[in-house]
Design a protein around this nucleic acid. Structure first.
Length: 263
DNA sequence: ATGGTTGGGGTCCAA
């Protein structure tokens, strides 16, 4: 089974890109963030045409928005709200017993000081609340996968320059502290790092503002797949689909995909 | 050098 996550930055404008991705990588389940579409405007028929017969969505006007599209049956679990009422989370049960959470964490604004930047304060609080929720309501012996744009690049090789980005939101020690709390909440595995050594640079996002992003390669790893320990033996393949940053009209994020063996 | 680009909705905000 293949599960993918992608911050699509408008699901409507990038449907043809989604089609190309689905045809190439054949995900069974596709989790999207930043759909930027109210539920009544979600492109259901188009998604159905790609074989996604099962869809759970949570949108809002203009901003945020998450969706889980699936070729295999899914059952809605939760649409949780951590701290504010924005559409940043949706979760489902898969028929093989896995619970799948799709998140779009707050970006956090520009100034890396929670005492003067309310958005950053909210971001830290949001991560903390998510960690608390998993610690309180979920157990590390369950099969749980958490994916999404977490807007945090936790490791020194998850950014193009650890030293130069220490005061840049997404890579501050404060965010890494809260990210690690989330990781420990139910003993999550950082799946991408199971496949790619911590010593290697690994990115999933390159800013639109960085012209020549490929030559400069000033990327960050903001998109994550976390899994509980009971899924460790099922992890079979992993792709960060960098070629989708090179298309016409790309998202600034690329898809991250894992394949699980049947158990 | 402190910019740069993009999408949605509406003449600016968020990323």
């Amino acid at each position: 089974m293949r599960i993918a996550t992608w911050n699509i930055n408008s699901v409507r404008i990038r449907f043809e890109l989604i089609r190309a991705f689905v045809e190439k990588y054949k995900p069974d389940v596709l989790c999207l963030q930043e759909t930027k579409t109210q539920d009544e405007s979600f492109p259901h028929l188009e998604m159905q045409s790609l074989g996604f017969n099962y869809r759970e969505i949570r949108g809002e006007k203009s901003y945020n928005g998450v969706a889980i599209l699936s070729k295999i049956p899914i059952r809605l679990s939760d649409k949780l709200t951590f701290f504010n009422d924005q559409s940043r989370h949706i979760s489902v049960h898969l028929e093989n017993g896995i619970e799948l959470h799709n998140f779009y964490f707050p970006s956090g604004g520009d100034i890396a000081d929670p005492s003067i930047n309310q958005k950053f304060h909210h971001k830290l609080q949001y991560i903390d609340n998510v960690a608390d929720w998993f610690k309180r309501y979920r157990s590390d012996n369950k099969k749980i996968i958490l994916v999404g744009d977490l807007n945090i690049a936790p490791g020194k090789n998850d950014v193009w320059s650890h030293r130069q980005l220490l005061d840049t939101i997404s890579h501050t020690y404060m965010e890494v502290y809260h990210f690690n709390r989330l990781m420990k909440s139910i003993n999550f595995i950082d799946v991408s790092r199971e496949f790619v050594s911590y010593e290697e640079k690994l990115y999933s996002w390159w800013s639109y503002k960085n012209i020549g992003w490929r030559e400069n390669d000033k990327g960050r790893r903001l998109d994550h797949i976390l899994a509980t320990q009971s899924l460790k033996e099922s992890l079979n393949k992993h792709f960060i689909c960098k070629e989708f940053r090179d298309t016409n009209g790309p998202s600034d994020h690329v898809p991250v995909l894992i394949e699980l063996t049947k158990d």
